[in-house]
C-alpha cells in the first residue's frame, strides 16, 4: 500500500493557512477578511484530519467537527456585525471604522 507522508498533508494545511493570513493582511474589504478567516479555520481543521489519519484515531475528526461548529457560529455573528457596520458607515472598508478607538 502506497502511503503519503504526513509532512505533505501538514504542508498543504500550512500553505492554505498562510494564504488566508496573507489575505487578511493585504485586504481591506471586510467581507474578504471574513472569507480569509474561514480559509484559515479550514486549514486548521485539515491539519487535525491529517494527524488523526496518521495515527488512525477518531480524535482528529472530532476536533474537526468542533472547528466546524465554531466556524458556523463565527460566520453568523461576523455577518451580523458586517451588516451593522455597513448600515452605520455605508461602506465595507475596514479602515473606515478606525474612529472606534477603544
Amino acid at each position: 500500500m502506497t502511503t503519503i507522508p504526513m509532512e505533505y498533508g501538514l504542508l498543504l494545511a500550512g500553505m492554505l493557512f498562510m494564504l488566508g493570513l496573507i489575505s487578511v493582511l493585504i485586504r481591506r474589504n471586510i467581507i474578504f477578511m471574513l472569507i480569509s478567516v474561514e480559509i484559515m479555520l479550514n486549514a486548521a481543521g485539515l491539519a487535525f484530519i491529517v494527524a488523526g489519519s496518521h495515527w488512525a484515531q477518531p480524535d482528529g475528526q472530532i476536533m474537526f467537527i468542533f472547528i466546524l461548529t465554531m466556524a458556523a457560529a463565527e460566520v453568523s455573528v461576523g455577518l451580523a456585525l458586517i451588516l451593522q457596520i455597513y448600515h452605520q458607515l455605508k461602506t465595507l472598508n475596514s479602515d473606515a471604522a478606525n474612529f472606534m478607538k477603544g
Binding site: 502506497t2 498533508g9 491529517v50 489519519s53 496518521h54 488512525a56 477518531p58 475528526q61
Partner: peptide
C-alpha cells in the same frame, strides 16, 4: 486510505 488508517463514521460517533 493513502495514509495511516481508515476511520469511519461509526468510530467517530462512538468517540464523540
Amino acid at each position: 486510505p493513502a495514509t495511516g488508517g481508515y476511520v469511519d463514521a461509526r468510530a467517530v460517533g462512538l468517540a464523540l
